[in-house]
Design a protein around this nucleic acid. Structure first.
Length: 947
RNA sequence: GCCUCGGUGGCGGAAUUGGUAGACGCGCUGGAUUCAAAAUCCAGUUCUUUCGGGAGUGUGGGUUCGAUUCCCACCCGAGGUACCA
């Protein structure tokens, strides 16, 4: 038979399913004596639009790697699941009333069908769905673990909250080096014991790793929800364009800041892309410097500031506070009160948009108050200005105009003196912020010192007079963990007197309640406020009707749900033991699989999922629940596949469409045309186009050479641009093996590259040629018959095979899949030319190609007479001996330019080579009588003649 | 502005530690087969040329016998981030 991709692919997909070929075994089962290898993809959100050809790119790459590792004898864990909580399903529910669970179920089904057609070697028996109660039970469980933990800076890890209570009982909180809220007051052991239960709980909340706090959030009244910064574009909501205001709300937060240092330090131990590590490093934003306390003259107040340049402390000529700073109202002089209040009000009114657009305007107001310089005791005027952010550092800066451009601009604008404390530096035009080579001057005890020396000495002095200390500051903020949404994990939390209580872990999962409306309630409560059965009975330990709430044994449940990243922060661990009903995962399974060896996914998750997941991993590691504190050893970001959009051009003000090369200066409007209406030579199928866009049925077409030529542009693949290509169609027409190889063939995995269906015929043709290597044509020309000989392979055959093995192994290990597809093509071209049909070559060839094109490889493997799947056949070993050559065709260069080639034995001496080369007629021709100055001969590489 | 990645034919892209630039594929041109088409096969395809050759990897310098590769300066594109003290 001819290469019938549809029949072959259906057959083997069915075979893999029935035989559970890719089921990974856990410890205790047969086959677990093999070394483990864990290959993971970032699991998808199942959107209603289904997959386009860009989505599976990373999955194909990881699948090739997973299959390769199986051939190498590893027990490979390669699971897949769905990040199935999320906004689109909820949005759809609001519009249609359809329960998000139903929409999600439908979408997942569609995803699964599409994924199955591509022939992935996923172990579907371990599938997880974040919206499934069996799964989110463990998300809730981790939340409870966080609630019951605090971070001990002395031991450098999270510990159980009961240890903290013991410490409070023994000696209050003053001797404890814990990560806690900034406003935590000191207390003694006696005081602790005398606090009411309620007060004790309030204090503990200041230490717990997940805690309730008043947070300033981006509140969107129209959507009834809080938005993340990236959901706001130009000051309005990305979706719908509704106004957004700053609002204080009580929200759950995650104390990720406790892990700032370790999240930074851990980056050195993992093989992740540098840009991704840089993004996390910047996000965490560590700065080293000092906290300096400035006394406010005539008051008892102190203003702490954070500075990275304590060496420039003698250059301070004013201070600036954020307008929102809590001391502003306290210290403002009566005569400045009006101006200050007006400024605060103006700042609060200014939208983020204004502030972003208007970075050049310098504004601020003098408070009338003076602080005291810690060393000189000179008065330092205190200003407020909106270039200082309340949320960073202490919300106040010591302004050193000679060393910081913003301070400089501010000082110039308001005529504040700019003392120069740098030796031999001109600051008449701009501030001087260079650290290297700087010598401090006009600075008392710091005179003559370098940046490093002065910084060290300034901190020492500040500490000695109790006016400050060295400090490390992070930009990273604690993560808000509450969302005013329906389609997310419910918090396992109920409230007694307004204080949160955890539901016992044995009663999990706390299932999402049914609601009639998915919108916020009329009183502005989150959607769960619509649920009528959403109260916790502490005696029956179950969810009961709200009517039964008596605040004695039945209490209201939390109305917020968890954010999108909750379910994805530890899913990779759950895969290790996905159906465990008693534990998150057994210690045995966790110790066997340990961590992800290869993780493939998009770079857009750099500071979201990938940072939070590392945080949870470290936390669970601290608690002794996981064996390693970094979950993924190696990570690769696959590049986006872009769409190639096609355009037709309408002459302005007419209904005439003009072919691209006839435009010539005419004013036209480009209109997107569907990519499927255009062939590989950019010719439009005019009739099909008219059919597709009836408004152009009567349009006139100006053709060139009888054809309409479209314009092309590379854009993101999207429905609205009519450039979406569906993998199902490709699988139907060319087959999954062709799709897999073509996606890899497009270019390097990490790079963005445009999709162009036209090019796929090359890869499809290659698979047909591969098939023909194993078959002979039938007499009469119809079809072909399997034909492989047992004759020994020729030297040439073996050379082709082994050079291909060598290249493909190198390529897979370097994740350079595009170049191995080329190597396969070269191999098949060569073997075809050699008329090779020897089993000795064709059998190993089927194995090395099987990670890329598994269906055809299985079929050929079976035809070669094997029982069972090719998936576990040992990968052929490369043998150097087949590649040894006795001569080399040397390129002969003149001054570095290759002019001709010369075949010489590899064992020839350089002297002899030189003689032959110089005697060569072409050499004489090139030299034209000149005498060469120098002859460079690199044996086995090149000959270069200089002169 | 800062950080990161990239710039090679008409197109996607190859090129070990510096050593034959343009592999492989698409497209294009010509040919074979065919009544014709599809499919398949063969040859050619960086530019330029007086057909000897000459030029050529974003631009300009540098190191080197030799640079797509290393160094310096700059230009352009993509992504991230931003009054961060």
């Amino acid at each position: 038979m001819k290469y019938d991709h549809n029949a072959i692919e259906t057959k083997w997909q069915q075979y893999w399913k029935e035989n559970k070929t890719f089921k990974a075994e856990n410890p205790g089962s047969a086959g677990v004596d093999k070394p483990k290898y864990y290959v993971l993809d970032m699991f998808p959100y199942p959107s209603g639009a289904g997959l386009h050809v860009g989505h599976p790119l990373g999955y194909i790459a990881s699948d090739i790697y997973a299959r390769y590792k199986r051939h190498q004898g590893f027990n490979v864990l390669h699971p897949m699941g769905y990040d199935s909580f999320g906004l689109p399903a909820e949005q759809y529910a609001i519009q249609t009333g359809q329960h998000p669970a139903l929409t999600t179920e439908t979408n997942i089904k569609r995803y699964r069908e599409q994924l199955d057609k591509i022939g992935f070697s996923f172990d579907w028996s371990r599938e997880v769905r974040t919206s499934n109660p069996d799964y989110y039970r463990w998300t809730q469980w981790i939340f409870i673990q966080l609630f019951n933990s605090w971070y001990n800076n002395d031991t450098g890890k999270a510990e159980d909250i009961s240890i903290l209570v013991q410490k409070f009982e023994a000696g209050g909180n003053t001797g404890i080096n814990a990560v806690c809220d900034n406003d935590t007051e000191p207390f003694t052991a006696d005081e602790w014991r005398n606090f009411s239960e309620e007060d004790q709980q309030k204090i503990l909340l200041k230490y717990r790793l997940t805690y309730l706090a008043e947070t300033e959030v981006n509140w969107c009244p129209a959507l009834g929800t809080v938005l993340a910064n990236d959901e706001i574009v130009n000051g309005v909501s990305e979706r719908g364009g509704h106004p957004v205001v700053r609002k204080k709300m009580t929200q759950w937060s995650m104390r990720i800041t406790a892990y700032a240092k370790r999240l930074l330090e851990g980056l050195d131990r993992i093989d992740w892309p540098q840009p991704l590590k840089d993004a996390q490093t910047n996000w965490i934003g560590r700065s080293e410097g000092a906290e300096v306390k400035f006394k406010v003259k005539g008051t008892a107040f102190e203003i702490p500031v954070f500075t990275t340049r304590p060496d420039t402390i003698f250059g301070v000529s004013f201070m600036t506070l954020a307008p929102e700073h809590e001391l502003v109202r306290e210290i403002t002089a009566p005569e400045q009160k009006e101006a200050v209040e007006a400024y605060i009000e103006a700042t609060a009114k200014r939208s983020e948009r204004d502030r972003m657009a208007d970075v050049k305007t310098i504004s601020g107001v003098f408070t009338g108050a003076y602080a005291e310089h810690p060393f000189t005791k000179e008065p330092v005027p205190v200003w407020i200005g909106d270039y200082v952010l309340a949320g960073y550092g202490t919300g106040a800066v010591m302004a050193v105009p000679c060393g910081d451009q913003r301070d400089y601009d501010f000082a110039k604008h308001f005529d504040i003196p700019i003392p120069n404390i740098f030796k031999d530096v001109d600051i008449s035009e701009a501030a001087y912020s260079e650290k290297n080579g700087t010598v401090i001057a006009n600075s008392d005890f710091l005179n003559g010192l370098s940046y490093e020396e002065a910084t060290k000495k300034a901190i020492e002095k500040l500490e000695s007079i109790n006016a400050g200390q060295g400090r490390i500051n992070y930009r990273l903020r604690d993560a808000v963990f509450s969302r005013q949404r329906y389609w997310g994990e419910p918090f396992p939390v109920y409230y007694v007197n307004g204080l949160p209580q955890m539901i016992g872990v044995e009663h999990l999962p706390l299932k999402l309640p049914e609601v009639e409306k998915y919108l916020p309630t009329e009183t502005g409560e989150p959607p769960l406020g619509n649920a009528r059965t959403w109260a916790w009975d502490t005696e029956k330990n179950e969810v009961v009707s709200n009517d039964l709430i008596d605040h004695k044994t039945v209490f209201p449940l939390e109305l917020n749900t968890m954010p999108g990243w909750a379910g994805s922060s530890s899913y990779f661990n759950r895969y290790m033991d996905a159906h465990n009903q008693d534990e998150f995962a057994s210690q045995e399974a966790l110790n066997y699989w340990k961590d992800v060896d290869l993780y493939i996914g998009g770079s857009e998750h750099a500071t979201g999922h990938l940072l939070y997941a590392r945080f949870w991993q470290k936390f669970l590691f601290d608690k002794g629940l996981l064996p390693v504190d970094e979950f993924a050893k190696k990570l690769i970001n696959q590049g986006m596949i872009l769409g190639t959009s096609t355009f037709v051009y309408r002459i302005k003000g007419s209904n005439t469409l003009i072919s691209k090369n006839k435009i010539q200066g005419r004013e036209t409007e480009p209109i997107h045309a569907d990519v499927s209406l255009v062939n590989a030579s950019d010719e439009l199928d005019v009739e099909a186009f008219k059919e597709w866009r009836p408004e152009f049925r009567d349009a006139e077409f100006i053709l060139e050479d009888g054809k309409y030529i479209v314009g092309r542009e590379v854009e993101k693949m999207s429905k609205s641009k009519y450039n979406v290509v569906n993998p199902d169609d490709i699988c139907e027409q060319y087959g999954a093996d062709t799709l897999r190889m073509y996606e890899m063939f497009l270019g390097p995995l990490e790079q963005a590259k445009p999709w162009n269906t036209a090019g796929i015929t090359g890869v499809h043709g290659f698979l047909k040629k591969l098939w023909k290597l194993y078959h002979s044509p039938l007499e009469g020309g119809q079809g072909d018959v399997f034909h492989v000989s047992d004759d020994p392979a020729s030297k040439e055959n073996l050379k082709t095979l082994h050079k291909t093995i060598k290249k493909v192994v190198e390529d897979i290990e370097n994740f350079s899949f595009n170049t191995s597809v080329s190597s396969f093509m070269i191999a098949v071209n060569e073997l075809t030319a050699q008329k090779c049909n020897s089993r000795e070559v064709l059998e190993p060839l089927a194995i090395i190609i099987s990670p890329y094109a598994p269906h055809i490889a299985e079929e050929l493997w079976e035809r070669l007479g094997h029982q069972g799947s090719v998936a576990f056949a040992p990968f052929p070993e490369f043998e150097e001996k087949y590649l040894v050559e006795s001569s080399k065709e040397y390129p002969v260069s003149f001054n570095g330019k290759m002019r001709f080639k010369l075949d010489l034995p590899l064992d020839m001496s350089t002297e002899e080579m030189e003689k032959i080369v110089l005697a060569h007629e072409k050499t004489q021709e090139q030299l034209q009588g000149r005498t060469p100055k120098k002859i460079i001969i690199v044996p086995g590489k090149i000959i270069n003649i200089v002169g």
